[in-house]
Design a protein around this nucleic acid. Structure first.
Length: 1045
RNA sequence: GCGCGGGUAGCUUAGUCGGCUGGAGCACCCGGCUGAUAACCGGGAGGUCGCAGGUUCGAGUCCUGCCUCGCGCACCA
């Protein structure tokens, strides 16, 4: 503890920057963590950001919520380690480099050289590391950035390999196909994020094709918008419960557009609902049946020989699929296994041949059809239509307008294309995923139960391989001879299995690892690595253990830090990091990964638009760090709304927060510190003084705020907690306690009253600092240090103390009455500075403790209690709709009318006598409330506080004494204002010259009062017109002159 | 298209179990107060509680449908 130092005007940017260097020289962060090393661990995991993008304001939001919880838990006594992390792999990194070096295809990358390319990627990853570091430090996000985990480190990669091997050993890893949007020009498949960049509306030919049944003359009609997939057709899907019809062509139509057609007598099959939509001929319906009757029927391949039947028994037959609808097409879905996700899944399910008719270059493979072989599929639409037409297999063509994904780099249409891929069989652990998810405490709960739960219920196998260059290499080697698949789980294992003479690089990345040949454990053949890298989400999903290099790193480190207590990221991570963490922990450890997850809402600009580089509406955090400071920015973000709601970031809001919360708090502190310094106040050795009711009140309110903050933090309601604190600081502390206490500290002697005020202010400020320290770590520390000599971040979270709620309620009434007095004066047109002789408080609780305060606030000479309510007021009966509604239901309007239409006092007395019945209902005292209203003719106001209704009445008569006092106050106020304009110090003395015209008499004692208040050594009062500064009040004109002594 | 979450004053928002006249803050206007700070107090103006139905004595609140914004999924024949 220490005597506070005097303070300066607030410069929050300087204050924060100064503190940053203090913290760093004290190693304060480390100290706050180490200090709690015996405490119960609270385990936090940092979601690794990518440092190859500039940090934006949304990162500040996420880091604020991460930080505040960790700081709060630390103050509560927990041991909270915070290891930084960086996500360094993946497509975004590659794309950044590709753009910079103009390497727009895989071919170009390979020409440039994979080694060079990955070297560029490795460097690119750190492009903005310094910017991230600066942002992180400036906003006071306490996190160990000197020893972070980095996904590109060999140790990290090794842990990922280990994890994958666990999955492999459990039989959860398999190789298959995944249909992805693929650009043959760049040789790249795209993630959904990139696909979303390239949707274009295009008009393309769609065709209705006849598939001739083998055991009948009829043909099934199917529709497709991608004619190039027709050679790959191996099945037709129908809805088992959909109703289909067989129609016979009776007559040619009058009009026909485009290719295609049908002969009279031809039989066609399609869904009944789409008959009118599709058929252009005059037909007769000759049969009707459900889709299930079609299942199993064989039809003739459109392009015989394009696909090899192989082992398949279902190729070119009708298959049932319940997702088939009749919203468009023919109710029959042409199925080309390799070129549609549904098609592929269906094909796998029923055993259709999975063979390509199209190569990776986008051209038809040899053997598809003599007119198509080797041609780019998108150029073949017309030839295919022509071929169908010529062989009589085309019914109709129709131009079709739809949104179709295009390559965002080359503008070419993407092809849905089945790519070779490795999968983790998440479907096998679905029940576990759901069970573990139900054990997570989600904020808000609907993200976990609804959004995430829904996703898990539809979980699909996780395609973890990518045909890319920069990433964790997939540690699967395959034997050239016997085809054995082997998953490597450590560097040591790789080395031990290496073929003699093979190169083993230090760096585990491609291309080096590709050159490592292993010796097959069964046949001694050469094993080559599968040329994939892993989905970078797999990397971050391993963070909980890979950050410690588990199981190769420090023993026990992982075990002591798992499962995680708290993670916090944007809601967009639901299917991202939130999922991959759980997916990995479930498959590897059969365990929950994190116990609590705070899912943050998106950050939008002030107009509610998503912030994005392309829109140019990104807010630079430094705009605010350098203006209002990090405290105000953080506080604004937390108080602007619930963490999970979208935050409309309004720069004016930050400004407002600064002006309101921080300037106010600073000035309260300044007020206390300046006097405390002047008086040599020491919170430990100075006498306690004698507490006034005002002191007890603010301490009670403080205790209330401590409780509500603690509770609301537990409930994740940080916004509510901080709004309450702000309300307390601005309203209760500054605008009432300090305002009412100002004169107490002016006392030059060490009075009991002053000492009590100083102790109280000390305690309130110190406690408020603790409460806000997690959110706004700078000012809280600055004030706390000045008052106590130590850092608030080493302090304990404040404990609950008793609350005197009667006192709080009483004070609320007092303040309400003070406001009411001003209202009365406005109504009665009586200026505030002109005192009233008497004020009466009518009814209500005992306020005698506060009569002096009230007298000052109301500017009355005396406050009296008036027992006789009826002197000023009458009673009004107000119905209690809640109880009456429950009792009377539909008769309520009649009852309400009965209560309101009659004389209130008569109603009241019959209710009290227990004999009031309206519309057949007995009305009791519970059914009504009493309200007091002033009788006519009184300048009074009545207020309602809980059960009390209280009235205030002011005496409006003037006396010479009152007029003199009022005049003195007006003169004083003008002189004080002039003193301020003259930049005089409080201690400076002045001389006064005053002239008054048409003014009431100014009594000697009031003249003396003016001199004392304004620190005037002397004053001349003249009863004539004067010159200089001049003002008018209630018909008097006053001139005055102030001279500094 | 499906799922989730929003829509309350010009802006940002509170609104509990359905119940008294839907509260605040910013901005605006009028007035007051101030050795009290970018503060404060009183008053004013500003509301189709997204729209339409329904349940109910009574709906911002519950139900149904629709519109709209955001997010996620699917965009598929």
């Amino acid at each position: 503890m220490a005597t506070p130092k005097t303070t300066v005007e607030l410069d929050s940017v300087a204050l924060e920057n100064d503190l940053l260097s203090v913290w760093s020289s004290e190693k304060l962060f480390e100290k706050t963590v180490d200090n709690r090393s015996n405490g119960e661990p609270f385990i936090f995991l940092e979601g690794p950001p990518t440092a190859n993008g500039k940090p934006g304001i949304h990162h500040v939001v996420a880091r604020t919520y991460k930080d505040l919880v960790c700081r709060w838990k630390t103050m509560q006594g927990n041991f909270v380690e915070r290891k930084g992390g960086w996500d360094t792999h993946g497509l975004p990194v590659e794309i950044e480099v590709q753009k910079r070096l103009d390497l727009m295809s895989n071919e170009a990358i390979e020409q440039f050289g994979m080694e060079n390319f990955n070297k560029e990627c490795r460097e690119s990853v750190w492009t903005y590391e310094a910017a991230w570091r600066e942002m992180t430090e400036r906003m006071a996000y306490w996190c160990d950035l000197d020893d972070p985990y980095v996904t590109l480190h060999n140790e990290y990669i090794e842990s990922c390999w280990w994890a994958l091997k666990q999955m492999f050993d459990k039989g959860l890893l398999y190789r298959g196909y995944k249909v992805l949007p693929y650009c043959p020009q760049t040789g790249t498949s795209y993630s959904s994020h990139e696909v979303a960049l390239g949707y274009k509306e295009v008009e393309e030919p769609s065709v209705y094709v006849k598939f001739k049944l083998e055991d009948s003359d009829a043909s099934i009609l199917a529709w497709t918008t991608t004619p190039w997939t027709l050679p790959g057709n191996v099945g037709l899907a129908v809805g088992p419960d959909v109703e289909y019809i067989k129609v016979k062509v009776m007559k040619e139509p009058e009009k026909w557009e485009g290719h295609g057609g049908a002969e009279v007598g031809e039989e066609l099959i399609l869904a009944k609902d789409l008959y009118k939509e599709v058929i252009r001929h005059h037909c007769e319906i000759i049969d009707s049946f459900s889709g299930s009757e079609l299942i199993g029927r064989s039809y003739e391949p459109l392009f015989p020989g394009a696909v090899d039947r192989g082992e398949s028994e279902t190729a070119w037959t009708v298959i049932g699929a319940d997702w088939v609808t009749t919203t468009d097409g023919t109710g029959v879905v042409h199925t080309a296994v390799m070129y549609g996700e549904d098609d592929y899944n269906l094909g796998m399910e029923v055993g259709l041949p999975a063979q390509h008719t199209v190569g990776m270059d986008g051209n038809f493979l040899e053997g598809t059809h003599s007119e198509l072989d080797g041609k780019y599929v998108k150029d073949c639409d017309d030839s295919i239509i022509q071929l169908m037409h010529e062989s009589g297999l085309l019914y109709r063509e129709k131009m079709y307008l739809h949104d179709y994904p295009h390559c965002w780099r080359t503008g070419h249409p993407l092809l849905y294309y089945a790519m070779d891929s490795w999968f983790v069989k998440m479907t096998a652990v679905k029940e576990q995923l759901l069970k573990f998810n139900s054990e997570v405490e989600w904020a808000p709960d609907w993200v976990g139960q609804k959004r995430f739960g829904e996703w898990l219920r539809n979980v699909k196998d996780w395609a973890i391989s990518r045909e890319r260059y920069w990433g964790t290499p997939l540690p699967v080697w395959i034997c050239n001879e016997c085809g054995l698949q082997h998953c490597i789980g450590s560097v040591e294992e790789m080395v031990s299995m290496a073929k003699e003479g093979t190169k083993i690089s230090e760096d585990l990345h491609r291309p080096f690892v590709d050159d490592t040949i292993l010796k097959c454990p069964t046949c001694s053949g050469d094993m080559k690595r599968e040329p994939f890298v892993m989905d970078c989400w797999f990397d971050s999903g391993c963070a909980s253990f890979a950050q410690w290099h588990h199981p190769f790193g420090e023993e026990g480190k992982f075990e002591n830090n798992f499962p995680i207590d708290y993670i916090c990221e944007g809601v967009d991570q639901t299917r991202g990091w939130f999922y991959t963490l759980l997916a990995v922990s479930t498959t590897v450890f059969d365990s929950i990964c994190y116990k609590r997850c705070l899912s943050l809402g998106l950050i939008l600009d002030a107009e509610g638009k998503k912030m994005s580089k392309s829109k140019g509406n990104i807010v630079d955090p430094w705009d605010h760090f350098n203006r209002e400071g990090a405290d105000a920015t953080r506080w604004y973000m937390v108080t602007a709304g619930a963490p999970w709601n979208p935050l409309k970031f309004d720069p004016n809001g930050v400004r407002e927060t600064y002006g309101k919360m921080f300037l106010t708090l600073w000035n309260v502190h300044r007020f206390h510190a300046d006097y405390a310094a002047l008086d040599g106040f020491d919170p430990e050795s100075s006498k306690p003084g004698i507490k006034t009711p005002l002191d007890n009140w603010i301490l009670s309110r403080l205790a209330q705020v401590v409780d509500s903050t603690s509770n609301q933090f537990e409930e994740w309601d940080f916004h509510k907690a901080c709004r309450d604190i702000e309300e307390f600081v601005v309203n209760d502390l500054s605008n009432w306690y300090v305002r009412r206490s100002r004169r107490r500290l002016w006392d030059e002697a060490d009075s009991n009253d002053k000492l009590s005020c100083q102790h109280t202010l000390h305690e309130v400020l110190v406690t408020v600092c603790k409460l806000i320290a997690p959110v706004s770590p700078f000012m809280s520390d600055s004030i706390f240090r000045n008052l106590t000599g130590t850092s608030v971040h080493l302090a304990d979270w404040p404990e609950s103390k008793p609350v005197d709620s009667d006192l709080i309620q009483t004070m609320e009434l007092v303040r309400e009455l003070a406001e009411t007095g001003r209202k009365i004066r406005v109504d009665a047109d009586r200026r505030q500075r002109l005192p009233c002789q008497e004020g009466w408080i009518v009814s209500g609780p005992d306020l005698s403790d506060f009569h002096d305060i009230l007298a000052e606030e109301l500017n009355v000479e005396t406050i009296s209690l008036e027992e006789d309510l009826d002197r000023f007021q009458k009673v009004e009966v107000v119905p209690n709709r809640r109880t009456l509604g429950a009792k009377c239901r539909q008769d309520l309007p009649a009852v309400l009318e009965g209560i309101q239409s009659d004389d209130s006092e008569a109603i009241l007395s019959s209710i009290e006598a227990g004999n009031l019945t309206i519309a057949g209902y007995e009305i009791t005292t519970e059914d009504i409330e009493l309200r007091r209203v002033e009788r006519e003719g009184y300048a009074a106001q009545t207020i309602q506080m809980a059960e009390n209704s209280v009235s205030l009445v002011l005496d409006m008569t003037d006396t010479p004494e009152l007029l003199s006092k009022g005049l003195a106050r007006d003169i004083t106020r003008r002189i004080q204002s002039t003193r301020k304009d003259m930049n005089l110090e409080i201690e400076d003395s002045i001389t006064l010259e005053i002239w008054m015209k048409d003014a009431p008499e100014l009594f000697e004692e009031d003249k003396a009062w003016i001199l004392n208040e304004t620190r005037a050594k002397s004053a001349n009062f003249n009863l004539t017109a004067g010159e200089g500064d001049c003002f008018e009040v209630d018909g008097s004109t006053i001139w005055y002159n102030v001279e500094r002594v």
